[in-house]
Design a protein around this nucleic acid. Structure first.
Lengths: 233, 233
DNA sequence: TATTAAAAGTGTATTATTTCACCTTTTGAT
DNA sequence: ATCAAAAGGTGAAATAATACACTTTTAATA
């Protein structure tokens, strides 16, 4: 019996991480991971991993939406990517760095399990197909952020905001209508522009009938035309 | 004896890839890689890997400087990162994708060896420390590009160009004085701005005594002040 | 070496973006 | 319920960046 009784919020039976893991490793191997794992809940706004802190564990995110945030030397924030569950968070550091390069914050209430890095590494090293699967999980986050950056790097604000709207609709909320989890300030940190520019641009899109904005509620009326704006830059 | 006699341009004795590999794998394992490998030379400007093409091999770059280039749907180019030898190129696709996400082009004359992906994968899967080392090699390229993107995403052109000058001086040419391998157009594709903006900004820095520009020859007179411009944005 | 094409460079008009000084609305705490 | 703080929003002035129409320089080659 463990000394500390960790609270259990949810049932592990149909856990995706377990399902995937057990395609590659034995149940008793997985059990070694499970007993070390702790269930956690995060409220919207909470920091899950802190930039610069030592990376002691991964988090398998089973529910919620998170942002990867980079704070620069002037205290300015940049959102590198937004991801929804399921995702393996903190893995950017498996191969690379000892310390977190970015912060990870909940932008909707989240649930997840810690996963012991050294144990996962040990098991993965002995099960290379599993290792590959984990690396795929991890690099997915990188890859998605690269394409955000390409948009940032050579499109103007109209195109970038169109891109973000399409991205959120297709990759995060899976719907043309959604309630934005980001403040206008955060939207600006994702789009790499000023808060005012975001507001003006959303208003313009709204007035042109492209989208309907009602506070945090956004409806994409004309995704095709939005695509055109994205393409055109 | 092989059916095709591949030309040999350089000697493998002191190859870094061999040296590193043989810290992890047996000589006879490495030999399996070596016999499949072909020595190649690229002239400045040549495409080494083509975006969208199937990734059939890695390239161990033993000499030269390369750019990672992304061409968007409008034919606009973006330079994601610039790397110098030694580097393992094409590895972005080991874990991820079947097709090259980016092109890799020589911006100085290059020399390297092809490395058979399937053979390397097979050996690496059987030698997990080696696998880790290779993954480190590969993700290095990603990591360096992420920090370029952060600069791009929330600095203005002054800061971005200062960043690039510092980057080139410290990471590529290892000197305060260097002969730029990039055209002004390529510099602009790296900085995410127009060619004219690059020229104007370099001229301004020159007039302020920060740098000395003489065509492709650039001297950083005042790296500290350049750092300040970079920090300030 | 004359010719041509490509790259570099310039100044200005136009457009895009940020900043600022506000005001309004929403939200959370007491 | 009231207050304070945070977020959302606005329009206009100031600044930054691009596009354009050129000229000049450099490099390539017939």
């Amino acid at each position: 019996m463990s000394q500390i009784d960790h609270q259990r919020y949810f049932d592990c039976t149909d856990c995706l991480f377990k399902t995937i893991s057990c395609q590659y490793i034995q149940k008793d191997e997985f059990e070694k991971l499970r007993v070390k794992s702790v269930q956690l809940r995060y409220k919207k706004g909470e920091v899950i991993l802190k930039q610069g802190a030592k990376s002691t564990h991964f988090l398998f995110l089973r529910k919620g939406i998170i942002k990867f945030n980079y704070e620069d030397e002037n205290g300015k924030n940049l959102i590198l990517s937004i991801n929804k569950a399921p995702a393996l968070i903190g893995g950017a550091n498996l191969v690379n760095a000892e310390f977190n390069l970015f912060s990870v914050c909940a932008i909707e209430d989240c649930e997840g399990c810690t996963i012991d890095v050294s144990m996962l590494t040990r098991i993965a090293l002995a099960n290379t197909l599993y290792l590959f699967k984990m690396l795929q999980f991890i690099t997915d986050v990188f890859r998605s952020s690269i394409f955000n950056f390409i948009s940032l790097a050579h499109k103007q604000v109209n195109g970038r905001i169109a891109d973000i709207l399409i991205f959120l609709s297709q990759n995060i909320y899976m719907n043309n209508e959604f309630v934005l989890s980001l403040s206008r300030q955060e939207f600006a940190e994702f789009a790499g522009c000023s808060k005012e520019n975001v507001i003006h641009t959303l208003r313009k899109f709204h007035n042109e009938g492209l989208i309907t904005v009602e506070g945090k509620k956004i409806l994409l009326n004309d995704p095709e035309r939005l695509q055109k704006i994205s393409k055109h830059g």
